[in-house]
């Protein structure tokens, strides 16, 4: 950036017409304009509907003031739902980033058949969320016919009924499985620009593998980790398909996050008003999260 500013402030020769800057606006307009519409129009409509009593099954919309918000905020399930949302962001974040760092280091080093092993590791990233949730729910975690149940029985243990007894853990496992490859991919890319001579020098000075990892590799990965955290936060805040396909938010609201809450309370009941109030609530929560932790991270970029 400094480079570009330096260039445009260079004195230009007298023969050269000083076209100070390009006319930036026409070039920016399509992207900015579209995003502006995309951000504002649905938001304005959501805000409008959040003050309406509007059920698709009994059409005429009537102004009800804050009733939808009152319904939402006095719902005893709400604290749990917000908590679940945060858990479903933070735990998979910790798991995927930790695993991503370790795997990036592992797959950066040479070993036999590394190319193919890498392809296998990133495979889950290409699997759509509905499919991966279905595979895990049925083929692997099913308490009777699933592979895990069979494994437990062969070791003489009681099979775990994942989605009844540990539904949150099960969903976290599925999400982590899907997103570890993403973290690994980005961090692996970052590893490629690590200064090998520095590592070699550290080794010559007698630094062990752990020491070089902590003092050279980890600092090098700080910025890419910030990127991973930011992008994954965006995706984790919106987790929906995995819940829909596996637990449908239950038992009770134990695995309901905000997006799923809006879906089940509002949309399933065709209640546009409540769904919209929920939407506004979700946007506020997302922005609080964004404020606290993406701003801090964005400074890194």
């Amino acid at each position: 950036m400094e480079n570009a500013t330096a260039m445009s402030s260079l004195p230009t020769g007298s023969w050269f017409k000083p076209t100070r800057t390009v006319r930036a606006w026409p070039l920016m307009a399509p992207a900015v304009g579209l995003l502006l519409i995309w951000a504002i129009v649905p938001l304005a409509l959501t805000l409008w509907y959040s003050f309406q009593g509007y059920n698709l099954l009994s059409p005429p919309a009537t102004f009800v003031g804050l009733e939808n918000y009152y319904f939402l905020l006095t719902d005893p399930d709400l604290p749990r739902v917000v908590w679940n949302t945060l858990v479903l962001v933070l735990v998979p974040l910790v798991v995927t980033v930790t695993a991503g760092v370790l795997l990036a280091v592992l797959y950066d080093g040479p070993f036999f058949g590394r190319g193919i092993a890498r392809l296998l590791v990133i495979a889950p990233f290409f699997v759509m969320p509905t499919v991966s949730a279905l595979i895990w729910k049925n083929l692997l975690m099913h308490p009777v016919y699933g592979l895990f149940a069979w494994l437990s029985r062969s070791f003489g243990m009681q099979p775990i009924d994942w989605f009844t007894n540990h539904p949150m853990t099960a969903i976290i496992i599925i999400i982590s499985w899907q997103w570890i490859p993403f973290a690994t991919l980005i961090l692996l890319t970052a590893m490629q620009s690590l200064d090998r001579e520095q590592l070699e020098a550290a080794r010559m000075d007698g630094a062990g593998a752990t020491t070089s990892f902590i003092f050279i590799t980890l600092p090098h990965l700080a910025r890419p980790v910030a990127v991973v955290v930011m992008l994954e936060t965006i995706f984790f805040l919106a987790i929906y398909a995995e819940i829909l396909v596996t637990t449908v938010g239950g038992p009770g609201v134990i695995t309901t996050n905000i997006p799923f809450y809006i879906y089940s309370r509002g949309l399933l009941g065709y209640d546009v008003g409540v769904a919209s109030a929920g939407g506004i609530f979700a946007i506020i929560v997302a922005n609080i999260v964004a404020f606290f932790f993406v701003r801090a991270i964005a400074r890194q970029l």
Partner: peptide
């Protein structure tokens, strides 16, 4: 990107 899709689905 932080705007949850489900929040603006209805509109």
């Amino acid at each position: 990107k932080f705007m949850p899709a489900v929040g603006v689905l209805v509109p």
